[in-house]
Simulated assay, not measured.
Amino acid sequence: MIDILQWSTLAICALTAAARVPSAIRGENRSLFYIFALMTAAILLSIEAPYVAIDQALGGINLANLLLRFIIFAAIYFVGIRVTRGFGADSAHRLITGKAGMVVLLIISLVLVALFFMMDTVGSSAGLAAVSAKNERNFVLVEYYGAAGRAYPAYVSLVLLPAMVRAVRSRLPVLVRVAAALLAVGGVAIALTLLFPVVPPEWGAAEFVINYTAVLCYVLGLALIWAARVQNRKTSPAKRTYTEK
């Protein structure tokens, strides 16, 4: 089941990114293409076979996992910019791109890198499962490292959540409200990842479901915003709206 979820999510992300290529070449909403491409790369690095192959090429010390974390940071950052601009959430935009957001990103990034290099990371292992199993010290460090990796996406998601809730309750077009609802669900799913350290080991599959639910909701939500923009252009070609920001 997990394999099906991983590969199907990868396929959806890759197809959505590919569909955005013509528009990106024309210079239209390139941020959406960047988001879908980054999400595709993140999902690829989350699957064991490609992860191991890529990490072996990088030296076999799980640098691919650190790369994965920063790809996720970049993707969620671009999501934050795209969504706050699209929905006119100025305060949320400042919390992500302003001084506060940059300080949060810098601190979390420094902690993440420091924790990574404090571990014995030799031996490619998707999800750092083998690294965690080496000894008690590694186990604790992997837990802290994972928490740091989830912190920034959770921060951005929680910043976006109030704007998404307002959009769902508004009188915006149905497609946009559905998109906002999906983005809100994705944000809640990402926020729930902060609870992973207290999740019982036997519930491990739930972590995969929550992670991939977040990705799918964000991808589908952004795709619906794109669809709403296309629809708006067809019905009101001279009118510029939130979908074009």
Score class of each variant (00 low, 15 high):
R137K: 14
A184Y: 01
G186P: 03
R166T: 13
R169V: 13
A179I: 11
Y145V: 08
V185R: 05
Y152N: 01
E143C: 08
A167Y: 04
G187M: 14
G146K: 00
A148K: 04
P153N: 02
A151Y: 09
Y144C: 15
P153Q: 08
V185C: 07
E143T: 13
T193Q: 08
L172R: 11
V174H: 12
A163F: 03
L172K: 06
A148C: 10
G149K: 07
G146I: 05
L195E: 08
V188Q: 03
V178L: 14
G149R: 00
A184H: 00
R150G: 08
F139M: 14
P200H: 11
R150K: 15
N138L: 09
A180R: 05
L182R: 09
S157E: 04
L161H: 04
V140L: 15
A189Y: 01
E136K: 13
I190N: 09
L160D: 04
G149A: 03
V159M: 13
V168A: 06
G187W: 13
L182W: 04
A180G: 02
L161M: 12
A151E: 09
L183F: 03
V140G: 10
A179Y: 02
R171N: 15
R137E: 11
R137D: 11
L195S: 12
L183Y: 00
L175I: 12
L141A: 07
V165S: 08
R177N: 06
P200C: 05
E143H: 06
V156K: 02
A184N: 05
V174E: 13
A147M: 15
I190F: 13
S170P: 10
L141D: 04
V178A: 06
R171H: 14
A151L: 15
V176W: 02
V185Y: 06
L183T: 00
V156D: 04
Y155M: 12
N138I: 06
V188F: 13
V140H: 12
L194K: 00
V176R: 11
R166M: 14
L195I: 14
A151I: 06
A191T: 08
A184M: 06
V174N: 11
E143V: 05
V198H: 10
P162T: 10
L175Q: 11
G186Q: 02
P200G: 05
A191V: 08
L158I: 15
L161F: 15
P162S: 13
V188R: 07
A154P: 06
P197Q: 12
V188E: 06
A163G: 02
L175S: 14
A163I: 00
Y144L: 15
G149P: 07
A181Q: 01
L195C: 11
P197N: 02
T193G: 03
V165I: 15
V176F: 12
N138V: 07
A184G: 07
A147T: 15
R177Q: 12
I190Y: 05
Y144Q: 13
P197F: 08
G146D: 08
A179E: 00
L141R: 10
R150Y: 06
V168T: 08
Y144N: 13
S157K: 07
P200W: 10
N138T: 00
I190S: 08
A148V: 08
L172N: 01
P153S: 04
R166E: 15
V168E: 09
A167E: 09
R177S: 10
Y155S: 05
R171M: 15
R171K: 15
A167V: 11
L160R: 07
L195N: 09
V185E: 00
I190M: 12
Y155E: 00
L161D: 03
